[in-house]
Design a protein around this nucleic acid. Structure first.
Lengths: 167, 167
DNA sequence: TCTATAAGGTTCTTTTTTGGAACCTATCGC
DNA sequence: GCGATAGGTTCCAAAAAAGAACCTTATAGA
């Protein structure tokens, strides 16, 4: 399968990764969360080539993850900012950072921690069930087909077992 | 910067993405969570070429995210299973899936939901502060340098402002 | 006025990485 | 013996990425 067809899978993960699952995109989003907004600042921060950066920023704008905002009318200069769609990538970034802190760290320890302004403490956010508030253990999560699968199945659009690859 | 040097950044995210931030790896891990274990089953599920799959599985084993387990001594056949390091990618996958459910969905709705066996309810896990249990808003999280940055800075190893790209 | 510089790109060329298909090897069931 | 199966490897063409050079407009400074 070509990567560009990956989002044809009935799988939210495949469709999400079609947008940000390449080499640089998530690092660009990371920088955007760090309030980097201008082309040249992304360039300096990432060490990415202009070509690639231009391409990735445009793609993020096309996908609605970032938006351009004019900041210099004379020269037609735009900043790149996260949209709501982009802001909601925060849990993705946070979980990647936490995993990296634990498993891809050098001997000096993790590079950064976070203070939760609301309560004032250094926080290590955790994933909990929105119902019982208990931390999630993968073995306790049982996948069940949602509407996106049931409706397609009712219309006979799914090949055998395709519903089983729908995480 | 070459992608293969990306993990030299003092950034947990860059170092994590150096391991699983390419096109296929996270989809392979997804399948592993779905109890797919054998080469040919990954191949069928993903539509990836053998070449690529072999390469990615070996890399995951090298990185300690998966391990090989002999299941047919005669033929020297191995299964690929997640290690603890791999199992702890669950929040990453889950947050990607949730984002995809919300933002990369077709009109039929999300393909899958999850029942939390512990409490018996359909659950949408969320990130909360481990201190005050409130849901996390990105704007409330203030990054502060951790030991991985402070120690390097004390040894004079950081160039100006490098600590500021350490998420 | 002339020149230099900066931002935000685009173009060109070379390397790397993919995708796709064909091929290989050992064992098993018949 | 004969085809099927699992788990690869090899080869080649196509796509994507890296690196450098170049372009355009505007503004700052000599």
């Amino acid at each position: 399968m070509r990567w560009e067809d990956i989002d044809s899978q009935v799988c939210s993960m495949a469709r999400a990764l079609a947008i940000f699952g390449d080499r640089w995109t998530l690092l660009i989003v990371r920088d955007a969360f760090r309030r980097i907004r201008r082309f040249s600042d992304f360039e300096k921060s990432l060490g990415i080539t202009k070509h690639r950066l231009s391409d990735r920023l445009n793609r993020l704008v096309d996908e609605g993850v970032m938006k351009k905002a004019l900041y210099d009318e004379k020269r037609g200069r735009y900043e790149y900012r996260l949209t709501q769609k982009g802001l909601e990538l925060y849990p993705v970034l946070m979980s990647v950072v936490q995993w990296g802190d634990k498993w891809a760290c050098d001997d000096d320890g993790f590079p950064v921690e976070f203070r939760h302004k609301t309560c004032g403490h250094v926080s290590v956010p955790r994933y909990v069930c929105d119902c019982c508030n208990e931390p999630i253990d993968p073995r306790d999560m049982q996948p069940i087909p949602g509407p996106g699968v049931e409706r397609k199945r009712a219309r006979g659009e799914l090949v055998q077992n395709e519903h089983s690859r729908n995480m």
